[in-house]
Design a protein around this nucleic acid. Structure first.
Lengths: 193, 193
DNA sequence: AAGGCCATGTAAGTTGTTACATGATTCG
DNA sequence: CGAATCATGTAACAACTTACATGGCCTT
């Protein structure tokens, strides 16, 4: 699945500019998808070329014209076709967990910092998901569809579990690796190997 | 973080061939990292060129020489340096959740199939993680380090939550979207737009 | 004054995937 | 007989990220 399909998808919920689509991704998709301007703008250009969206320019004073995109009926059909053909993959790429995996090679303070940083980055994401779950309202003010509610509920369950796990096992991990790194000054007997 | 660093990392746990490294990724890393031969072999070639690993060839009858890689002391230093410089990101890219997000545009049977497929793909991953958690033994027979245990515990907690959530909300979602798609034959009154 | 928000877009570079190329052995 | 396992490697391609280019307004 590429950014084009995603753009088409969010545009079925209402007309938007490229900038707003980016916001939308950050608000509602951040826990399972990411896209930057560098991929969104070219995607919109291509969709326009293919006739799957139309755009109208809105003049603004002292900044580039705003370009508002709308899905065409053809675009809707293409979206459904694309969704039907998309294999339902699910990939996690976590340098965080890789780092944890090799925690015994790193200074405990560094590991502690890594964990705290991760916790801090997850928090606003969880907060936004929780807001969507509880209010049933998207950031743009529209009520959520069933799928959005499911995805948000999933996010809450999974991120909640992640936060709980990391918070409750952080100190245990830190204690354990502290022993590894500790210089052999007070060397307790029995260090096998 | 690139595949080179990962290879360096798993090689600190013991000498391996490229093929075994791939297995290792599948067994222990699959829930947070992925890499194919197309990236592993070039990575090992580059590490060798940089002097961060050495390799010895083992002749085999009727198949390509096995090439066993070992980390050099220089490689260990490079690994730590690399790990210390790695920002602890954590990204999920889930076409599965995107599809769910737009579930209201798809036939309910299709959504049901998607969900079942995902559940089926998660199961062996969870099983392997659970095995690591419970036995404390890596697939290659080595006892796990603290970090590995933490990562495995994380995987169990998070994948467990994902499975629970998806299993217990599947029918609710399906019921809800079935109403959308239902043709207006028996049209119940009150279908607001 | 610095930085964030609004607003669009391009180009170079990174990184990895897929498919290909080769080939014997073993299991069902 | 087909598929999986063992074993390595290359090359074309896809896709996205980062940095750059532009520029005013508003808040701290």
């Amino acid at each position: 699945m590429d950014v084009k399909t995603l753009c088409l998808g969010v545009l079925t919920e209402g007309d938007k500019t490229g900038y707003e689509i980016k916001r939308c991704f950050e608000d509602s998709f951040s826990h399972f998808f990411g896209a930057s301007f560098g991929s969104i703008y070219p995607a919109l250009a291509e969709l326009t070329r293919q006739g799957l969206v139309t755009r109208r320019s809105v003049e603004q004073d002292r900044r580039p014209d705003k370009k508002i995109y709308s899905v065409t009926p053809e675009g809707r059909r293409a979206l459904v076709r694309e969704l039907l053909a998309t294999p339902p993959r699910h990939k996690v790429r976590s340098e965080f967990l890789v780092l944890i995996y090799f925690a015994h090679l790193l200074p405990p303070e560094h590991v502690a910092r890594i964990i705290d940083e991760r916790l801090a980055q997850w928090q606003p994401v969880v907060a936004e998901i929780e807001r969507i779950c509880d209010s049933g309202i998207c950031p743009d003010g529209q009520p959520v569809t069933r799928g959005v509610r499911f995805a948000a509920g999933y996010g809450r369950a999974v991120l909640g579990a992640a936060l709980d796990y990391v918070r409750s096992h952080k100190h245990e991990l830190l204690r354990e690796i502290a022993q590894d790194v500790e210089p052999p000054t007070r060397a307790l007997a029995g260090a096998a190997d």
